[in-house]
């Protein structure tokens, strides 16, 4: 485990947060807190409810009941204020393929209301940082997947949000690129950005400060990876997950 720079300030809180679709309870009274600068892993099999839970926190979906705050704002009332303070990267790749790298950054900076000067400066900084100075004017579709993924993450934190939500960001990427991607996540966390990440790669779970494991819409376990391994008497997060996931009754969707 790396040293964390958490301050104890709670930036995400959920209290008995629930989402029902008709009779189906997608998320069943989940409660947790995430501290500023923390890398919080959100684990679960497909259909366990992780994406639905994340969508409620991002303001894409209205909770059925329970309470939640993001960046200190209520998810029911202050949706608009939350949106300005969070970044989001979906499991679908989210840059425009027919736009250049710079145009994509201009666009995302633009919809967050950033100034021209800020966008220019930030774009140059990111391209330099990723060693992609020569690729700025290339169409995104001409870039390899790994680069696109890193760019997508850079775009998600382009407007310097306090919290970034990553929904299975490393799907379909090779292990080396995944490792590099996680380095970017660490760097973001070091400058104080809180990372809320869903994944089903168990090796990635080890990189998180704390992980919660969702089974059938409920949080079955929540602790640091080392504590979880101790608690379940397991050698890896994989084993922890398997022990918990066996209880699942829901059919995978």
């Amino acid at each position: 485990m790396r040293a964390s720079n958490m301050t104890g300030e709670k930036v995400i809180t959920a209290d008995k947060l629930t989402k029902r679709f008709g009779d189906f309870v997608a998320v069943d009274q989940i409660s947790f807190e995430v501290e500023k600068g923390e890398i919080f892993g959100f684990l679960g099999a497909n259909g366990a409810g992780k994406t639905t839970a994340m969508r409620m926190l991002c303001g894409l979906s209205l909770p059925t009941s329970g309470k939640a705050t993001v960046a200190g704002f209520d998810v029911y009332k202050d949706n608009e204020k939350i949106k300005k303070r969070i970044g989001y990267m979906s499991q679908k790749f989210s840059l425009y393929e027919d736009l250049t790298v710079k145009e994509n950054m201009r666009f995302y900076g633009g919809i967050y209301g950033m100034s021209d000067a800020f966008i220019k400066q930030k774009t140059a900084f990111i391209l330099h940082h990723l060693h992609l100075e020569n690729e700025g004017n290339k169409l995104v579709k001409s870039l390899p997947l790994g680069w696109k993924q890193k760019l997508a993450f850079s775009v998600a934190i382009f407007h310097e949000p306090g919290i970034v939500f990553l929904d299975e960001p490393t799907g379909g990427v090779d292990p080396v690129t995944r490792r590099e991607f996680w380095n970017m996540i660490y760097q973001a966390s070091e400058i104080g950005i809180t990372i809320f990440v869903t994944t089903h790669y168990m090796d990635e779970a080890e990189y998180c400060n704390r992980v919660s494991i969702m089974v059938d819409g409920r949080i079955e376990a929540l602790d640091s990876p080392s504590n979880l391994k101790k608690q379940y008497n397991a050698l890896s997060m994989d084993e922890v997950f398997l022990q918990l996931a066996r209880k699942a009754t829901r059919i995978e969707s």
Binding site: G59, L60, I86, I111, Y112
Partner: peptide
């Protein structure tokens, strides 16, 4: 389809 609509909906736009 591309998933960019979600990004837009999460944004303050």
């Amino acid at each position: 389809e591309m998933g960019t609509m979600e990004i837009m909906l999460v944004s303050p736009m």
